[in-house]
Design a protein around this nucleic acid. Sequence first.
DNA 1: TCAAAAAGCGTGTATATACTCATATCAGCC
DNA 2: GGCTGATATGAGTATATACACGCTTTTTGA
Lengths: 147, 147
Amino acid sequence: MVLDKQQCLLMAHTCACFSLRRAARLVSQAFDQALKPTGLRITQFSVLAAYHMTGDLGIGKMAKGLGMDRTTLSRNLKLLASKGLVTLEPAEDRREQRVKVTKRGARAFEKAAPYWQQAQTKVISALGPDKWAAVQQDLRALARAAK
Amino acid sequence: MVLDKQQCLLMAHTCACFSLRRAARLVSQAFDQALKPTGLRITQFSVLAAYHMTGDLGIGKMAKGLGMDRTTLSRNLKLLASKGLVTLEPAEDRREQRVKVTKRGARAFEKAAPYWQQAQTKVISALGPDKWAAVQQDLRALARAAK
DNA sequence: TCAAAAAGCGTGTATATACTCATATCAGCC
DNA sequence: GGCTGATATGAGTATATACACGCTTTTTGA
């Protein structure tokens, strides 16, 4: 069976993975651009926000909650620690790492928040809040189906 | 101004970039899983499909068409070349690279296509084809707005 | 014709991502 | 107390991603 160019074209244009990766790439660039004055990447900002919000969760559980690989989150945290924005200490259960957002981390986060808001507004404006909320639901459904 | 946990929670849950990256991560894992027997990652499969479909485009133009960074595509292609799936030769305009899918590349692509289809069907099943098409439109709109 | 601008690309560097394998700790049971 | 399985994590490796810088070739305009 030899696929013709039309079929390939169709495949490239409908591939769920490619579409999502493409959107994620381009939107990430916009957020990173907006956050540039803050010295944070959007990924770092997200992780910082997550720990600022949930307090102290083990890396594995937090990773599961964020839909990230455990080792990815671990390495992201190490970066944040090297910048002095979080601290990593062993917990009572000495298998776990206790993650704490430092004062400097909290300040960095709050300084970055308006820049985040600016990018968020810009990107979302393409759809409006309601449609965006619906799309978000759909994205979650896709992610669930992927498992 | 100190943000409280509620605001952080809201931020993490509505962040366009985080939502997209999360979906892209999880869906990519599903596609990579499905493509495992073929030895191709979904990114490599996409690039292979793109060149199989459009024939020979300069790296920069192809990258623009795919919404990828030029250097990212360049390195992806180098990987494919090392696997013998494409060849890279200088074009008449000696600034450009002529990219050709080898016979082996075409075979690998066609062998992988059914595995891709399987993952695609699985992921899309969460929404159904029509809703998926609408979401795709929205993703494109978001990507456009990001510029 | 020739210098400047533009086009096309590669390399260096940093981050993000995830799989595999190895290690340390804990909980429960005998 | 000590073994065993489960839990939590780190390290090694490979790929994906993109920004900044610089090089070569082509095009353009005087």
